[in-house]
Computed example of a mutant assay.
Amino acid sequence: MAITAESVRFGYRGGEVIRGVSFTVPEGAITCLLGRNGSGKTTLIRLVNGILRPHDGSIRIDGMDVLRSPRAAVARRVAFVPQEHQGVFPYGVEELVVMGRNPHLGPVARPGRSDRAAARAAMEAVGIAHLADRDYMQISGGERQLVLIARALTQETPYLLMDEPTSHLDFTNQHAILSIVRRIARERGVGVLVAMHDPNLALAFADRVILLREGRVFQAGPAAEVMTPENLQTLYQMPIDVVRLPDGRRLIVTEAR
Rank of each mutant, 00 (worst) to 15 (best):
T228H: 06
D247Q: 09
Q237S: 13
V242I: 10
L251A: 13
V253N: 10
L251F: 13
Y236P: 02
M238F: 02
Q233S: 14
T234E: 15
F218H: 12
V253G: 07
L235R: 01
V243Y: 10
E214D: 15
D247M: 06
V242G: 03
E225I: 07
T234D: 13
L211A: 04
V217P: 02
R249T: 13
M227R: 02
D241K: 15
D247G: 03
F218D: 10
P246K: 10
Q219L: 13
F218P: 00
I252L: 07
Q219A: 15
G248H: 08
T234N: 11
E214T: 08
E214P: 00
V243C: 11
V243N: 11
A224S: 14
Q219N: 10
R250S: 14
M238W: 07
L211S: 03
R213Q: 14
G221L: 05
D241L: 14
V243F: 10
V226R: 02
Q233H: 00
M227A: 06
L211F: 05
I240S: 00
G221S: 05
P222M: 05
Q233M: 15
M227N: 02
A220G: 03
T228K: 06
M238N: 06
P222C: 03
V226Q: 04
E214W: 03
L235W: 03
T234H: 09
Q233L: 02
Q219P: 00
E214G: 01
V253C: 09
P229C: 09
P246A: 11
V226E: 01
Q219S: 15
F218C: 01
T228A: 05
G215R: 05
G215Q: 06
D247W: 08
M227V: 10
A220I: 08
E225G: 15
I240H: 00
N231I: 09
G215W: 05
V217H: 02
V226D: 06
V217R: 00
L235K: 01
D247Y: 02
G221I: 04
I240T: 06
E214M: 07
T228P: 09
L212D: 05
F218T: 00
L245H: 13
T228G: 08
T234M: 11
E225V: 05
G221D: 01
Y236V: 00
E214Y: 02
P229N: 12
A223E: 06
L212S: 04
I210R: 01
L232Q: 03
M238Q: 09
R216W: 08
P246E: 11
T234L: 12
L211K: 01
E230C: 02
V242L: 04
P246V: 12
V253Q: 09
R244P: 00
P239H: 03
G215K: 06
L245Q: 14
D241F: 14
Y236T: 00
R216V: 09
R244Q: 15
L232F: 05
